[in-house]
Design a binder for these strands. Sequence first.
DNA 1: ACTTGCCTTAGAGTGCACTTTAAGGTGTTT
DNA 2: AAACACCTTAAAGTGCACTCTAAGGCAAGT
Lengths: 145, 145
Amino acid sequence: MTKQYRIGAFSKLVGLSAYTLRYYEDQGLIVAHRDANDVRFYTEADIRWVGFILHLKGTGMRLNDLKRYVRLRAQGDATIEERRDMLQKVKDDAEADIAELQMHLQVLGHKIDWYDGKVDQTIADTESFHDYLQQFNEQGADKDG
Amino acid sequence: MTKQYRIGAFSKLVGLSAYTLRYYEDQGLIVAHRDANDVRFYTEADIRWVGFILHLKGTGMRLNDLKRYVRLRAQGDATIEERRDMLQKVKDDAEADIAELQMHLQVLGHKIDWYDGKVDQTIADTESFHDYLQQFNEQGADKDG
DNA sequence: ACTTGCCTTAGAGTGCACTTTAAGGTGTTT
DNA sequence: AAACACCTTAAAGTGCACTCTAAGGCAAGT
């Protein structure tokens, strides 16, 4: 009834190489089904599971943590809180990363503006980027990161 | 007059190991000054330069691109536009990364909410995360990412 | 018959950015 | 005199997540 995919087709579907799918299986992240000839096949549910793995990886979760998450999942509902907390930490970390990234981007943006000023002469030839930056730095800035 | 720092002190100041500072110098990213005994020293201006390098690295710029940037910088004002364009690309890429990250984070957030619902019983024991997710997916969603 | 797609294990290779070691040295401080 | 901070070059090691090769073998399609 529900569609089945062998590793080649599944690979294209989820955007991971067949190598990587076997590697993830080795690592215990995925369990493939097998046909009568021991050939792997995957179903719609596996698409969703790999999709979720990719969301987790996409937020910066490491394979080791992913493995722990999968082990907890296998232990059933008793581990729901622990899994929730894992995800919360991943989320908090990712949000901190974004905040830091945006801080760096702000400086980058100023530098680009400064270059634009140099090119169209609205910034004096003699003004250094450091001096130019001061105006965005007037008060309330921390010294580092 | 202006303060000088040897590699150990400078290392603590900028948060890079002495190894890394020498490595960056090898790679042409930094030029250290030398005293009469060939011992490296750094000044306030070097703090600012390393700071800027860290902003660039912080937005995901690779060492190879950083090297190219530094080479262009050494060639003077004629390369300003090229440098501007490099930074713009780094910025655009980083912003795309953030957008993707936030997309992943949204799913993560939903999963956390779903766990919370399981824990306090506001979500039926039988409801799958996939079904739960559908409500945020009503229309206008692309299939992937 | 041959090609294609899949299977196995074990191990090597890749890319990036460091990080450390080895094995010698100089100069300053305690 | 010993400890400490620094210097050199060249090379090896680390961590992560793949990525690929080797060398064998099955099963289905053309």
